[in-house]
Design a protein around this nucleic acid. Sequence first.
DNA 1: ACATGTTGTGTGTATATGCACTACTACGAC
DNA 2: GTCGTAGTAGTGCATATACACACAACATGT
Lengths: 146, 146
Amino acid sequence: MSKQLDMAAGENCVCFNLRWVTRAVTQFYDAEMRRHGIRPTQGSILASLNSKDSWNMAELSDWLGMERTTLVRNLRPLQRDGFVKAVGGGRGNRVELTITTKGRKQVESLTPAWKAAQSAVVKTLGEKRWSAILSDLETAALALNK
Amino acid sequence: MSKQLDMAAGENCVCFNLRWVTRAVTQFYDAEMRRHGIRPTQGSILASLNSKDSWNMAELSDWLGMERTTLVRNLRPLQRDGFVKAVGGGRGNRVELTITTKGRKQVESLTPAWKAAQSAVVKTLGEKRWSAILSDLETAALALNK
DNA sequence: ACATGTTGTGTGTATATGCACTACTACGAC
DNA sequence: GTCGTAGTAGTGCATATACACACAACATGT
């Protein structure tokens, strides 16, 4: 049987459905990661910082697809907890963002929890289907950013 | 060429990718809807209220897949602006949530903006793929809620 | 009548998100 | 040199999110 949804019907709002699923998935990852004192969003930021020596604000926000001013605020708990160091910055000045040693340790100790969540989520549809979905969603998101 | 992603690699975190795409899609819908003074999340809530005469808090949060305490707060701007009426409520008492006449009018005047955004987003991948993706994502989200 | 468990609602605190706006720097045109 | 413009970073305000907790009403067993 086909699973066609009527995309002109309000109940099938792409935005609402994506937000709904994202809430559920985020809660699932969060449940695995919270005992390390790190949220999924923060984990993504740390992982990016861990993959390249130095970033400035605009570069990193671009990479993460996160609004620049959102990133400014999302970095604060990570700076407060000593996972990220920001040198320079202030109005008009470039800031140099780097992950600290403590931050790298956090990424490492976090990895098993992330893997557990990721693997459980991937199992729901299988790797192939998830790969196709993420690839399609990336296509859609990039098309909207034009 | 195949588009297989390595789902064990950190860059392909399902949570991060869903959050990223959802941010982009939400911004897109929001750009269409904001001139009506309504955000996408609020629109979803109003549309639900519009589809059934009376809800209480737990029912509606369940229907929306939105944490109950999140819904309590998300309703506030809608009550403040006179789109939703809450009768009863308070600690321990059931609340009866209903959309007002003003709320119904808002839903109607909002519909063209929603349709414009929905249609533009659907065009990025085509109706068929979006239907399949939403259907799969629903399967995944339900599996995680077990 | 009373204890108790279940259901239903709201608050405290913290993070996540983004538009409009401010403010400073750097650099090129002149 | 200075003037304008593009680039970069941060703030004000409002919404969105959810866990831990508090509290009230109700059913039910004793």
